[in-house]
Simulated assay, not measured.
Amino acid sequence: MANQTKTPTQSNPIGTRVSFGAKAKAYFALTKPRVIELLLITTLPTMILAQRGIPDLWLVLATLIGGAFSAGSANAFNCFIDTDIDKIMGRTKNRPLVTGQLSPREALVFSWTLGVASVIWLGLLVNWLASLISLAALLFYVLIYTLVLKRRTPQNIVWGGAAGAAPVLIGWAAVTGEVSAAAWVLFLVIFLWTPPHYWPLSVKYKNDYAMAKVPMLPVVRNTKTVVQQILIYAWAVGFSTLLLIPVAQMGLIYSVTALAGSVWFIVAAYRLYKEGQNGELAKPMNLFHLSNLYLTALFVAVAIDVLVNIQL
């Protein structure tokens, strides 16, 4: 029998030693740090609102670290489960499990370690309610979103948004030991924001998702339906931001930012909607980037509003 030699398809061939620095960088990339950054941006202002001032700095640090551990674990599990998809999609082809910088075993051990550490960390250094909410979000993201919804329904990202909205509940629970109506309004804002944030991205990578057999909305529905849904959710998130004004007794800074930012976001979504009536979207990512600015501005306004008001 002829000697058959397999040619490695990964950028790091089997047997090649990976340096410590490269390995550490790969583990860091496995956590999807850009996603974690956005989650932390929403957590700190929520804690300031819950405290109606500056919370204990050690509590803030413990909550942010524990939240980062939890989100990093969820994202690492996601990379482990979706390696077959990541190999196909251009956007994800350089992730550590695809390139071979990390083995599946290394990724799985890392995911479990970070997840367990997050539960213990938050439980002991923050409180057990925050820890349980974090655990529930992690399990929902991995077991419900990644394993069930993502590959089976075009509404995957809608329900998956619940995990992304959990950090505000964690932050509120960390400060108060409970979850009040204002925390649920902030949860609703992020939950409704997620679809019009993510669908423009999935429009750009529609062909990748189609090849990977992931039924994102732009894959299974025409462009007119996609932009219509984006516009509906843009209106919904805009209205939800205004709910916080009476519920949390927000002041002028937040109120103006919420109103102006929502109008800005809805107008941008409407322009995308009008463009989508022709069946093609030239620059869908413009709304994606705008949505990041919108959410960041909204939560920064929450913090500034509280801090300015306590000085008056």
Rank of each mutant, 00 (worst) to 15 (best):
W58R: 09
F20T: 08
T146D: 01
I88Q: 00
A29R: 12
L188Q: 00
I253R: 06
V227Q: 05
A268L: 15
S291W: 15
Q277L: 12
A62F: 14
V142E: 03
N94L: 12
L298I: 15
L132D: 04
V302S: 13
V256P: 09
Q101S: 02
P96W: 00
G72A: 04
R151W: 10
A181E: 13
K87S: 07
S111M: 02
Y209I: 10
K206M: 12
L143Q: 03
I81L: 11
L108W: 06
N286E: 07
R34A: 05
W112Y: 11
E106A: 08
N286D: 09
L149S: 10
L64D: 04
S134Y: 03
P45Y: 11
W172V: 02
Q51V: 05
A71H: 14
N156R: 07
V306L: 00
P104V: 07
L114Q: 01
L38I: 06
P13V: 13
A173V: 03
W199V: 06
L307G: 12
N78W: 07
A174S: 02
L295T: 06
L147C: 10
L217H: 13
A29W: 01
L49Y: 02
T43I: 07
V175K: 11
W58L: 12
I14P: 12
K32T: 05
V142Q: 03
G72I: 04
R17I: 14
P8N: 08
T46D: 11
A163P: 12
I170C: 12
L290D: 13
V189Y: 10
N156T: 06
G123Y: 04
K87V: 11
Y273D: 14
V214M: 11
P45N: 13
Y254I: 08
P45T: 15
E280R: 11
D305V: 15
T223G: 04
S180E: 15
L61E: 04
W159C: 09
D56A: 05
Q10V: 09
R91L: 15
T176K: 14
L293F: 12
L272K: 09
L97H: 02
W172N: 06
I157H: 08
A234R: 05
W235V: 11
L38N: 06
P154W: 10
P154C: 07
W193Y: 13
L287N: 09
K224V: 05
K213N: 15
K274P: 00
Q51D: 04
F28T: 11
Y198H: 06
I170W: 05
V263R: 00
T92C: 09
K6I: 14
Q249C: 04
L290T: 14
L312C: 06
T99P: 02
L122P: 05
A183F: 13
L61H: 07
A136L: 09
F239V: 08
I304V: 15
G100C: 11
I266Y: 14
L312S: 15
S291V: 14
L149Q: 14
G164D: 07
T16W: 00
N286K: 07
W128S: 02
L188M: 13
W121Q: 01
L243D: 08
S134R: 03
S131D: 01
T83D: 12
I170Q: 03
T42R: 04
G53I: 10
Y198T: 05
E178H: 15
Q155S: 09
R221D: 14
K204E: 10
A248D: 02
I266G: 12
H197T: 10
L125A: 00
Y141A: 04
C79L: 11
M211S: 07
G100I: 03
W58K: 10
Q277F: 03
T9H: 10
L122C: 04
